[in-house]
């Protein structure tokens, strides 16, 4: 195992800044590297990385590799896998961590198959086995009904990590580290995909992932009109509206509002689930909320197992009264 050394984080940036999840990965990677008594490495790939490499050091990296190229302006599987294959073969880290994001969930499997290794996807916990020194990844399986702990002996050991599952370190501006640009030759002819356009579907107001109060609706809302009532409540609470899968799949609300295994992960102070039964795949996206409140006509609904307070009844009657009372209380 001697030639594989170091814990590497694949970092993502937006507008020259590290994403929040990248700082979480660095926090987790720092802990793993310290346990293994090895360095924490970070690799950043893009067209222009701005201040992000220095920021990776501030958040815990010992050495930051950068790959900048106009061909890397947008994430494309072919170009990014080529870059990462070269980097991993040259640097030989023993662990590679990525975020479970649109990029990570595409890049990690394809890169792993090219390298001949097996990643653990969407991990909630990562630990080093004290005896074998191997990485153990705990991940949700069966739509969140169960958890599984996986290990792989093929190197580098790879894992993707779910948002908000790990904590970043306090930024330390005095931390010292090295920034090492690396050059990877890219052949445009080998990039078989072309990004035609990127369409943002941001909804107005507070971003769902950042909201301290989330009002989410499920299949029982019955159509797009019902979501207007949820919006009214969200506005009063200065929060955001979300949804389980059926309202998104039925186009009652934009897909970007989806909370769950295949949607967004939210961890607000207050999560109000309206007419949501609480399937495991939905709970995967909201069970980290501090307080879940459920309104559902089915007393047996699974959501009540996760909720702190609940109302058993038709949301069409319960919600307007709830909203009116909330408004009155907040005004008073």
């Amino acid at each position: 195992m001697a030639e594989f050394k170091g814990v590497m984080v694949y970092g993502e940036t937006t507008e020259g800044k590290l994403t929040a999840l990248t700082t979480e990965l660095l926090g987790c990677g720092r802990r793993l590297a310290d346990e293994l008594k090895e360095d924490l490495l970070c690799i950043l790939v893009g067209e222009q990385l701005g201040e992000a490499p220095q920021s990776a050091i501030v958040y815990g990296a010992d050495k930051v590799y950068t790959v900048e190229d106009p061909l890397l302006k947008e994430y494309q599987t072919d170009s990014y896998v080529t870059v990462m294959e070269k980097a991993i073969k040259d640097i030989s880290p023993q662990i590679l961590l990525l975020g479970q994001t649109a990029i990570g969930r595409d890049l990690a499997p394809r890169l792993a198959f090219r390298l001949g290794v097996s990643p653990s996807m969407d991990c909630l916990e990562l630990n080093i086995d004290p005896d074998t020194k191997l990485l153990q990844g705990t991940r949700p399986v069966y739509g969140g009904n169960a958890r599984a702990i996986f290990v792989s002996e093929s190197l580098p050991q790879m894992a993707t990590v779910r948002q908000k599952a790990m904590s970043p370190l306090e930024p330390d501006e005095s931390r010292k580290g090295e920034i090492a640009p690396i050059k990877v030759e890219l052949d445009p002819a080998k990039i078989k995909t072309k990004v035609i356009e990127t369409v943002k579907e941001e909804v107005e107001g507070i971003k769902l992932e950042d909201a301290e109060a989330v009002v989410a609706g499920g299949r029982g809302i019955g159509g797009p009109e019902g979501f207007k009532e949820l919006e009214e409540l969200a506005k009063i609470l200065k929060g955001a509206v979300g949804a389980s899968r059926p309202p998104c799949d039925n186009s009652w609300v934009p897909d970007t509002l989806q909370i769950g295994l295949t949607g967004k992960i939210v961890t607000p102070e207050l999560y109000i689930a309206v007419a949501i039964s609480g399937s495991s795949q939905h709970l995967s996206g909201c069970s980290g909320s501090k307080n879940i409140i459920a309104i559902n006509k089915d007393a047996e609904a699974n959501i009540f197992k996760e909720a702190r307070f609940g109302v058993v009844g038709d949301w069409k009657q319960a919600l307007p009264a709830f909203t009116a009372k909330v408004k009155e209380l907040l005004a008073g």
Binding site: A294, I295, A307, R308
Partner: peptide, 26 residues
């Protein structure tokens, strides 16, 4: 392979009608 433990301590707001329960919830 294991199942995460769910606490399941939900306080159900009792009332005569869903509307009343909604207001009490607030």
């Amino acid at each position: 392979l294991f199942q995460p433990v769910r606490e399941g301590k939900c306080e159900i707001i009792e009332a005569d009608t869903p509307a009343e329960a909604g207001a009490n919830l607030a």
